[in-house]
Design a protein around this nucleic acid. Sequence first.
RNA 1: GGCGCCGUACCCAAGUGGUUAAGGGAGCAGUCUGCAAAACUGCGAUGCAGCGGUUCGACCCCGCUCGGCGCCUCCA
Length: 484
Amino acid sequence: MLSIYNTLTGKKERFESLAPKIVKMYVCGVTVYDYCHIGHARSALVFDVIRRYLEFSGYQVEFVKNFTDVDDKIIKRANEQGVSCETITAKFIDAYDTDMGRLGIKRATREPKATEHMAEIIELVDRLMQKGLAYEVAGDVYFQVDKYQAYGRLSKRNLEDLQAGARVEVDARKRYPMDFALWKSSKPGEPSWESPWGPGRPGWHIECSAMSIKHLGETFDIHGGGMDLIFPHHENEIAQSCGATGKEFARYWIHNGFVQINQEKMSKSLGNFFTIREIFEKSQWPEAETGEMLRYFLLATHYRGPVDFSDQALRETKQALDGFYDLFNRLAEPGQGSAETDVELHYSIGWFEERFKMGMDDDLNTPSALAELQQLKNDVNKLLGQGLSTEARKIAREEFRSLGNILGLFQLDAWRFSERRAMVSQAEFEVPDIDVQLIDAKLVERNEARKQKDFKKADEIRRFLSSHGIVIEDKPDGTSRWKR
RNA sequence: GGCGCCGUACCCAAGUGGUUAAGGGAGCAGUCUGCAAAACUGCGAUGCAGCGGUUCGACCCCGCUCGGCGCCUCCA
């Protein structure tokens, strides 16, 4: 039974879906005017894991993640580059799909775009006008916050506090300083749509209300995004949505913490952010391995806390993952077992699953779940030392694959290992392209030499393979396995 | 000014009002090995920023102090 921290109530709550066995969740995607950074990756990943875990727990998940493709920043970017907004948005939606795909983020069941929901947006604004919660000034429409009683409920602030801390000049046309735009009249050259208030475009928050209501209904289960969206974005969404429908909007509000660099939030002004593609490009590891490293790294910290990104952290993550794939390699080899080890394996797996779920159920404690995975790895390693049958090995590997899948880990059949204590100097190291047949032939040759006690030759061969990035591990039976 | 977060071993990071404070990385010692690698075993916080308080008992609750950070403007 999943418990999850609800920003709305400030407490961990037992999760209960509105409809049995169906979860409807909406997550704020991105405004598509630039490449995504690791912060976006974390957010996408957290909700990807929530979705996977809910599915694992037997729910059908209707998962909507939007693209905001009409916005000031997009217009600005388009003008800077002298291209249309569509050029910009198409480019970065495509980039989003590529980047998130490399991280193994599953596609949402629906990925709506704001520009494709103008009718719904206008209708929603109109409803707010008719209810007297919004007003028009020269083609702009504002939501009047003091007409909505519960304003500030999500972010735990009141209008007075907000006003006192306002750092921005108040638009004189607003009736109340905190009023926010639902509809903006368009200036020449800007994208615009016909509306009862003249040609214009939607304000920032209204598109999420319109799209979530359209695709999930007026009341749904989960709404999520980064912590920075709590105010004003989600606060405003609640005001608009509840104001228009008179019903409860989302029931559980989930927010992930930031990715930081040296204890500070990543931001463009500090210039301390990393884009996802930058990390993949700079990585010395293949794409699949890099993606899994990033996932593991991000999931090794609880989703609500801050996580500090660094090269060192990523290196440590690689070492941790190597341990799993090392085990998987050995599990892929045939072996002899006993009734006792088979039984112990089942016992260990059973215990593990319980602990794993316990962690995940406790507000998605992925660090704890990973620790349990590590524990299982240790158990299986010990059993392997005692002897495990081929069948038992398959079962063990499958366990890692199936539960790992909830975190999007351990799905790979091949894995590039870190270089261990190098047998050769950097200068001797050659491009690690050597074909498998040659490796196997060299291993046979080497083991023949070992049998003859010609260790000089054996070491030469190892040295040769090592220079091609191949690491040899000798098995007790006189044969060897290798890995890159 | 308002709201809020963080401070656990060399590094990362869970966790609990009371048995041995998870796990990973690094390190050291050992087993195994021709040598390695991998794996396994052992070592490693007498303490959970500091000081008070509540309590039979606190790292975990409360208060204060110190240090770091976030939001209140666009932001995952």
